[in-house]
Measured scan of single mutants.
Amino acid sequence: TFTSIVTTNPDFGGFEFYVEAGQQFDDSAYEEAYGVSVPSAVVEEMNAKAAQLKDGEWLNVSHE
């Protein structure tokens, strides 16, 4: 299960995956970082959410 939350205070020191406002979700980078295949429906969902981000916001993507 993939989830996401919007934050204005990303923790770059941890093992977190963020999408910056104005960027798209990079499923290849996510797969490389976590060894998890990302279904195309999830990629579309995360890109739709990322498109709604305002300046200074980040989308924190995770999975269980």
Rank of each mutant, 00 (worst) to 15 (best):
T1F: 12
T1C: 15
T1E: 08
T1A: 12
T1K: 14
T1N: 13
T1W: 14
T1G: 12
T1H: 13
F2N: 00
F2R: 00
F2D: 00
F2P: 00
F2M: 03
T3H: 13
T3W: 14
T3N: 09
T3M: 11
T3D: 05
T3L: 11
S4C: 13
S4G: 12
S4Q: 05
S4V: 09
S4N: 03
S4L: 08
S4R: 01
S4W: 15
I5R: 09
I5E: 11
I5L: 12
I5M: 13
I5Y: 15
I5Q: 11
I5D: 07
V6G: 03
V6E: 03
V6P: 03
V6K: 04
T7W: 04
T7Y: 05
T7N: 03
T7I: 09
T7S: 06
T7L: 07
T7V: 13
T8V: 09
T8W: 08
T8Q: 09
N9R: 09
N9Y: 08
N9I: 08
N9V: 09
N9H: 10
N9T: 13
N9W: 08
N9K: 11
P10R: 06
P10L: 04
P10D: 02
P10S: 03
D11N: 13
D11Y: 11
D11K: 11
D11T: 11
D11Q: 11
D11W: 12
F12L: 09
F12T: 06
F12M: 08
F12Y: 07
F12W: 12
G13V: 07
G13I: 07
G13W: 09
G13R: 10
G13T: 14
G14P: 08
G14M: 08
G14V: 07
G14K: 09
G14A: 10
G14F: 06
G14R: 09
G14L: 08
G14E: 07
F15D: 13
F15P: 11
F15V: 11
F15Y: 12
F15N: 15
F15M: 13
F15L: 13
E16V: 08
E16T: 12
E16Y: 15
E16P: 06
E16F: 15
E16W: 15
F17K: 00
F17L: 03
F17Q: 02
F17A: 02
F17T: 01
F17D: 00
F17H: 04
Y18N: 03
Y18V: 04
Y18F: 08
Y18M: 04
V19R: 02
V19W: 02
V19P: 01
V19S: 00
V19K: 01
E20M: 14
E20Y: 13
E20A: 15
A21G: 04
A21V: 07
A21F: 13
A21M: 07
A21K: 12
A21Q: 08
A21R: 09
G22H: 07
G22E: 03
G22L: 04
G22F: 06
G22R: 06
Q23M: 11
Q23L: 08
Q23S: 11
Q23W: 08
Q23V: 05
Q24M: 14
Q24I: 11
Q24G: 09
Q24T: 12
Q24A: 11
Q24K: 12
Q24D: 08
F25H: 02
F25E: 01
F25W: 04
F25L: 04
F25C: 03
F25S: 01
F25N: 01
F25M: 07
F25D: 01
F25V: 01
D26I: 07
D26G: 04
D26L: 07
D26M: 06
D26Q: 06
D26P: 03
D26T: 05
D26R: 06
D26C: 07
D26A: 05
D26H: 05
D27I: 15
D27M: 13
D27R: 15
D27Q: 15
D27L: 14
D27G: 15
D27T: 15
D27E: 14
S28P: 04
S28T: 12
S28G: 11
S28Q: 14
S28A: 14
S28F: 11
S28H: 14
S28Y: 11
S28D: 09
A29I: 07
A29N: 04
A29C: 09
A29Q: 08
Y30T: 01
Y30E: 00
Y30V: 03
Y30F: 14
Y30H: 01
Y30K: 01
Y30I: 01
Y30L: 02
E31Y: 15
E31V: 08
E31L: 13
E31T: 14
E31S: 13
E31Q: 13
E31D: 04
E32K: 15
E32F: 12
E32S: 13
E32M: 14
E32A: 15
E32H: 13
A33N: 08
A33F: 13
A33R: 15
A33T: 11
A33I: 15
A33V: 10
Y34N: 05
Y34C: 07
Y34D: 03
Y34E: 00
G35F: 05
G35P: 00
G35L: 05
G35M: 06
G35C: 09
G35K: 08
V36Y: 08
V36Q: 05
V36L: 08
V36W: 06
V36R: 05
V36E: 03
S37P: 11
S37D: 06
S37N: 09
S37G: 08
S37M: 11
S37T: 13
S37L: 10
S37R: 15
V38Q: 00
V38Y: 00
V38C: 05
V38L: 06
V38H: 00
V38T: 03
P39C: 07
P39L: 03
P39G: 04
P39E: 03
P39A: 04
P39H: 02
P39T: 04
P39W: 03
P39M: 03
S40F: 12
S40Y: 13
S40E: 11
S40L: 13
S40D: 09
A41I: 10
A41T: 10
A41Q: 11
A41M: 10
A41K: 11
V42R: 03
V42G: 01
V42Q: 02
V42N: 02
V42I: 11
V42M: 05
V43R: 11
V43G: 03
V43K: 10
E44L: 10
E44W: 07
E44K: 12
E44R: 12
E44H: 10
E44A: 13
E44I: 12
E44T: 10
E44P: 02
E45T: 07
E45R: 07
E45N: 06
E45L: 11
E45I: 11
E45V: 08
E45D: 08
E45K: 06
E45M: 11
M46E: 01
M46N: 02
M46L: 15
M46F: 10
M46C: 05
M46S: 02
N47P: 02
N47K: 07
N47L: 04
N47W: 04
N47G: 03
N47V: 04
N47A: 05
N47Y: 03
A48D: 09
A48N: 10
A48F: 12
A48T: 09
A48R: 13
A48Y: 11
A48W: 13
A48M: 13
K49W: 07
K49D: 04
K49S: 07
K49V: 07
K49T: 06
K49G: 05
A50R: 02
A50W: 01
A50Q: 01
A50P: 03
A50D: 01
A51S: 11
A51C: 08
A51W: 04
A51L: 10
A51D: 06
A51N: 07
A51G: 09
A51I: 06
A51V: 06
A51T: 07
Q52L: 14
Q52F: 09
Q52V: 10
Q52I: 09
Q52K: 12
Q52Y: 08
Q52W: 07
L53G: 02
L53H: 02
L53Y: 01
L53E: 01
L53I: 03
L53D: 02
L53K: 00
L53P: 01
K54W: 04
K54N: 09
K54F: 06
K54D: 05
K54A: 09
D55T: 14
D55Y: 11
D55A: 14
D55P: 15
D55L: 13
D55W: 09
D55E: 14
G56R: 05
G56K: 04
G56Q: 03
G56E: 04
G56N: 07
G56W: 04
G56Y: 05
E57A: 03
E57R: 02
E57F: 05
E57G: 02
E57C: 05
W58T: 02
W58A: 03
W58K: 01
W58N: 00
W58C: 04
L59N: 01
L59G: 00
L59E: 01
L59A: 01
L59T: 01
L59W: 02
N60T: 11
N60F: 14
N60W: 15
N60R: 15
N60C: 15
V61N: 00
V61M: 03
V61G: 01
S62A: 08
S62D: 03
S62N: 08
S62Y: 12
S62C: 10
S62M: 12
S62H: 13
S62P: 03
H63A: 03
H63C: 05
H63P: 03
H63V: 06
E64D: 12
E64G: 12
E64S: 14
E64T: 15
E64W: 10
